[in-house]
Simulated scan of single mutants.
Amino acid sequence: MQRTNILSSVYRVRKSRSEVHLSKSCDDIFDKLIQGGVPPEELYDTVCKQGVEIVLTAHPTQINRRTLQYKHLRIAHLLEFNERPDLSHEDREMLIEDLVREITALWQTDELRRHKPTPVDEARAGLHIVEQSLWKAIPRYLRRVSNALKKHTGKPLPLTCTPIKFGSWMGGDRDGNPNVTAKVTRDVSLMSRWMALDLYIRQLDNLSFELSIKKCSEKLASVANEILLKG
């Protein structure tokens, strides 16, 4: 069933690329609002003030083994890569071999959990979704909003603006669950903090490779020195 869902998702993406205006982008919506008489300044202020809070939760029936999640993601990436028109015959053959290898390994992988997941297991699965999807998807979406906003109002989304925020019930949603104790809540909170720190460290590592310049302005050097002294 999961493999069928992956194929269905890839097919929907392929179909959407061939259909014009299947879904409205921020650019389309902002353009219609401006054309409809909404002043650019009002549009800018409204977008900057909007707030959406996404509350994360987890449920035992929604948990897959992490090994399976990585395999499903790998298969989806291979299927997407197979859509590239510039693939050579040899590249496509190697891709098919990789795909067969992943599916064969998946077929031999036990998809069922042999023990009931704990609240910490549930939280770990939820954090995996943050790591694999939301961590990249949300900034990508906000960049699209910022670019569209700049195009139609002349100003991008402020760096201090946070139109999307997150909350979490994971490890803290008691709701009659006797397994969610104070210790579980503390452990999940610490695990969440650890993952947040790990994700930021990875981003900083990537940034250090991107910044190949040797010199910076005196102002930037002064700010960096202040941060080092505070650390």
Rank of each mutant, 00 (worst) to 15 (best):
P158E: 05
L78N: 07
K230Q: 13
Y200G: 12
P117Y: 01
W107V: 11
D45V: 12
T185V: 10
V38I: 08
Y11E: 15
S18H: 12
K151T: 09
V223D: 05
D27A: 08
S192V: 05
Q62A: 14
D45H: 10
W107L: 15
K214I: 01
K165E: 06
A148K: 06
I227Y: 03
P163Y: 02
A182E: 00
Q2P: 13
Y44H: 15
P158V: 13
R174D: 04
V10C: 15
H21R: 15
D45I: 11
I29W: 00
E90M: 09
V10F: 09
R144T: 11
T162P: 00
A76V: 03
K24E: 15
D91H: 12
L211N: 03
Q108Y: 06
F166T: 00
S8F: 08
Q2D: 13
N82K: 13
K183P: 00
L220D: 04
T162V: 02
L204M: 10
R202Y: 04
L112K: 12
M191I: 07
R66E: 14
L134G: 02
E19H: 15
S217M: 06
F209N: 00
R74S: 13
A182C: 00
A148Q: 07
N206A: 12
I34F: 04
Q203A: 05
L199I: 09
H128W: 09
T61P: 08
P85F: 03
Q50N: 13
V13N: 11
N64C: 11
D91L: 14
D205G: 12
